[in-house]
């Protein structure tokens, strides 16, 4: 089963951080317990590396753009930069 699943894994680019991290942990776990066949372990390691990169980039893309909602006179909403007020 597992060796069949590996090629069927979704592309890492589309994965959420959480899913990528969970799979990374699962790969790490299986490598640590040695439950992976040697050939599969190489594939798993490679995928683990990609997952780790993906997670890192997800963590890096942390912008803190703070905006405020304005309700326009026609009822539509738009955003404006938010200034902290005391």
């Amino acid at each position: 089963m597992s060796e069949q699943q590996i090629p069927q894994q979704p592309p890492v680019e589309n994965m959420t951080f959480e899913a990528a991290l969970a799979e990374l942990e699962q790969i790490v776990g299986s490598l640590e317990t040695g439950s992976t066949a040697l050939e599969d372990s190489i594939t798993a390691y490679e995928r683990g590396t990609i997952l780790k990169k993906h997670c890192e980039s997800k963590l890096s893309e942390a912008q803190a753009k703070i905006e405020k909602i304005n309700i326009n006179s026609d009822g539509t909403v738009s955003t404006a930069p938010f200034e902290e007020q005391e």
Partner: peptide, 16 residues
């Protein structure tokens, strides 16, 4: 955690 996972990944495959 990711760094730790990476270490475990490397050490895991090395150990394997």
């Amino acid at each position: 955690q990711i760094l730790d996972d990476e270490k475990r990944l490397v050490s895991g495959i090395s150990r394997l």
